[in-house]
């Protein structure tokens, strides 16, 4: 184990960077706990999904599929399709990681979610495993504890606050994006293109939400890059 001051400071940075995620996960986790209870899951089953899967959208969808009596294979396949987008996110993160033993990366990759990915990807500089450990620990704790809280005593929080807290994760995404939008036209184009494509795919019903995010992200990333390069070439000639 590394116990150097540098690693400790990375860990603390990770905890601090994950605080926004932890706040955002609370209402989502409480809702999940409530839904799991109403879907007839036991406390152990509810917690097992949060502890081992740690993927909010997949857990919600699994609950609705369990409720309507869907088979095991279809639930697992749906989860896979929904979460294959993390492949793309991990690939993007792996470009930024520091040289470290592969087991450390394999360990922290468990905690790659839309939110931890976004925070790690927008971090300046390279990514250290201690940073990821802090980031994931605080996010994961919030998700697991919130799930249990939702199951046991979900209605304790005032409904007004519960409703408003639904904005938390989106506010975080916006907060992560805005500093780049201020300085980079490319970032604006990337985010806008992907957002528009995802709206089209989602509202047309052409793709499930998991695939819609992957395909819009890929098309936006590739087309903006190609347009940029074509323009650069044109400028030189």
């Amino acid at each position: 184990m590394e116990t150097t001051a540098a690693a400790q400071s990375e860990f603390k940075d990770g905890l601090a960077a994950g605080t926004g995620i932890a706040i955002g996960y609370v209402p989502a986790a409480i809702t999940y706990g409530l839904l799991a209870k109403s879907a007839g899951l036991t406390f152990i089953e509810t917690m097992s999904l949060s502890i081992f899967v740690f993927a909010g959208a997949a857990q919600y969808i699994a609950l609705s599929l369990i409720t309507i009596g869907t088979g095991i294979f279809e639930i697992v396949l749906t989860t896979f399709i929904l979460n294959i987008r993390h492949f793309l996110m991990s690939a993007a993160l792996s470009e930024k990681t520091e040289e470290e033993p592969i087991w450390k990366k394999a360990a922290y990759s468990f905690g790659v979610t839309d939110e931890t990915f976004s925070v790690a990807a927008m971090k300046s500089g390279s990514i250290h495993s201690s940073f990821m450990a802090g980031l994931i620990l605080i996010s994961y704790s919030s998700w697991v504890l919130g799930s249990g809280l939702g199951y046991v005593a979900g209605n304790a929080m005032p409904p007004v606050v519960q409703e408003s807290m639904g904005i938390a994760l989106y506010a975080m995404f916006i907060g992560l994006l805005v500093p780049s939008l201020k300085t980079s036209l490319k970032a604006v184009l990337l985010a806008a293109t992907a957002a528009i494509l995802n709206c089209i795919f989602t509202y047309s019903g052409a793709l499930s939400s998991g695939w819609a995010i992957i395909i819009s992200t890929l098309i936006a990333s590739i087309s903006v890059e190609m347009a940029g390069r074509a323009r650069e070439k044109g400028g030189i000639e």
Binding site: A91, A92, A121, L190, A195, V224
Partner: peptide
């Protein structure tokens, strides 16, 4: 490019 597009 992926992070910016994903956030969008």
């Amino acid at each position: 490019n992926v992070p910016y597009a994903t956030l969008g």
